[in-house]
Design a protein around this nucleic acid. Structure first.
Lengths: 195, 195, 195, 195
DNA sequence: GATGAATGAGCTTTCATTCAT
DNA sequence: AATGAATGAAAGCTCATTCAT
């Protein structure tokens, strides 16, 4: 594939990401996406063979985006406690400045099972992201900061909690701004996970 | 409304709940539901004026179901720690024996925003459930067991975590059975929330 | 048929007349009518075997209503010119105080051909009304006031004109109130028809 | 819009005009129209966003058709009396050779209020036609042939009368052929309107 | 690569009418 | 006579996808 084609694919993914996240997968039509990109419906299919495939490529893109952010944190020479805080920070930061990323993750990927069933089994489409959380966790355990427990238990706590907070923000029920919860949330997580 | 009609409404809700949860809101058609109940499509509309309204009544039903379960726990004369454990237990238990309840909550309600936007703003359709969690939390604070913090922070941790675990189970990535996590999960939650 | 039944039939016709006239034949449902009468849908069918039959009985009712009004004028001992004026007057008066009567005639009967095709051929459902206009015309001719021409030509002029004015009023394009046109309109008609 | 697309839109309008006029608006379905044109239902919607919009574009088309015919007469250098006769002639001629045009006007446009309410208020969708009749009338007044009266009064007489005659023909009650009425009808009109 | 007209299956919803009670 | 739940056919409209150009 040419560079140019790859570039256009990403343009399409970015536009679709925004539309899917804000209107939902089933309420976003291919013509909607094409229109927003000022390209023709038919041409869309030169880049993505189907709407489902497009959705799957987007979640990989989102996962990779978060994976990179967390890898950068993992590579810093700081305590696990500080890492925890930074992950929470980057998550909430994204919820504020790029809400479509988390909306896609939380509202499209996690719930439109029919679409991701074939091709994304066992979280392989969000592998980049999960892997980095796994590294964060295992290094925390190795250096004695975190208790050694079932990884997915820790993962469920960490990511479920963050997702829950972002969801509550989306429902407008949080009394404070999301970023003002960074300290409390990372404290709670660290309390639960630390050795 | 007659008792008989009310009973039929509940039959329809139960059948729809199962179908929505397993196939998704948009992939479940009114004919699907009617067929599963052996009733005519037209007659469905004598009970629910629209598919959206049906979905909204179902979430209230689910919320009320969980609300009752948790109220029973709240009314027991046990420590906050024990209550915490019991809530986790009932949640995971439901995920195992009535998975459609939690699937509906996690995959339909939490993510099909378009549908619940009008009429379920600010979590009012899940009020029964949220209220009981609030009671659990406030009583825990009052008796000195739990730290006094922003309720929604605690709620996000508790419910996000549980939702996360159920989601991971649904993805078949958990090495152990869900009910084997009850102790660890309630420990983690209690660690995070206790005074 | 009992008197009571006949009375109820008329109640139904009156209610339907109003609904058909204001919302149109196809936009008025049997449940709409039943609701407005606080009776059950099923019971409606004890009085009228079908919606079409109901519509046909109503036009006969309307025709008879106008027939009686015009007969009264025909029986008065006044000049043809005065009769002409009185017919225009009663027509416009009705358009103002019982608009549903004329709306039914002009918008339902004249245009919903499918419905009146079988059973109302050749204006037999509006016979009462047409007959009285015929009497008005023939007596006018006999006494030398009106020119002897094809009756339907005269009828088309008279009734087309009146219908046209009522329609224009319904479109809110008339600069004056409808009843202020009585003189001009009857003058125009008399000019055209007089010997 | 391309020329080709415009051409197809007109094909659709022509086919729909015929079907609406003969079967009525509500008894003509989009599948009916599509079938008559051998095109798919979905494709119809690439040309007209809704059935209502289609109906509105058709009435403008019909109005423009008549407008042009009458303009040609207005531009001729003949007496008002002759113009009157020619307008009657063209109207009856159309009723005979293109009955769908007048049926659409008289049976669909004039009576299906619900459909034309939004977007055709105050006769704006038949503006082309009304304007030419207005020109006919005002020039007739200016040159002293016609009496100066409320335009809509004259319009109601002229058009109501013609519509009435066409309606009577449609009911098969006229003893003579429609075109044999041209002289009598134009005489009657001229008698009523002349100075 | 690019266009957008065309397809056709499928959706939600409506409603005249029937019928068991 | 009266009720209203039940039927089922059909309507308007949508949309992922294809394909001739």
């Amino acid at each position: 594939m040419t560079d140019k084609k790859q570039q256009k694919k990403e343009q399409i993914m970015l536009a679709s990401l925004g539309l899917f996240a804000s209107k939902g997968f089933y309420n976003t039509t291919i013509p909607d996406i094409a229109l927003s990109l000022k390209m023709s419906v038919g041409n869309m299919y030169n880049y993505f063979k189907s709407k489902d495939l497009l959705a799957k490529e987007i979640i990989k893109f989102v996962s990779s985006y978060f994976g990179k952010k967390i890898r950068a944190i993992n590579e810093e020479n700081i305590s696990t406690k500080e890492k925890t805080r930074k992950i929470v920070e980057i998550y909430f930061q994204t919820a504020i400045v790029k809400p479509e990323m988390l909306d896609y993750f939380l509202r499209i990927y996690l719930s439109t099972r029919e679409v991701f069933k074939d091709g994304c089994e066992g979280m392989i489409c969000v592998n980049d992201f999960v892997t980095e959380i796994m590294i964060y966790f295992e290094e925390g355990v190795k250096c004695g900061d975190l208790r050694d427990q079932d990884f997915f238990n820790a993962f469920g706590l960490f990511m479920g909690y963050l997702g829950g907070m972002v969801f509550l923000q989306g429902e407008n029920v949080l009394p404070k701004k999301l970023n003002e919860y960074v300290d409390d949330v990372s404290d709670n997580i660290y309390k639960a996970l630390s050795a």
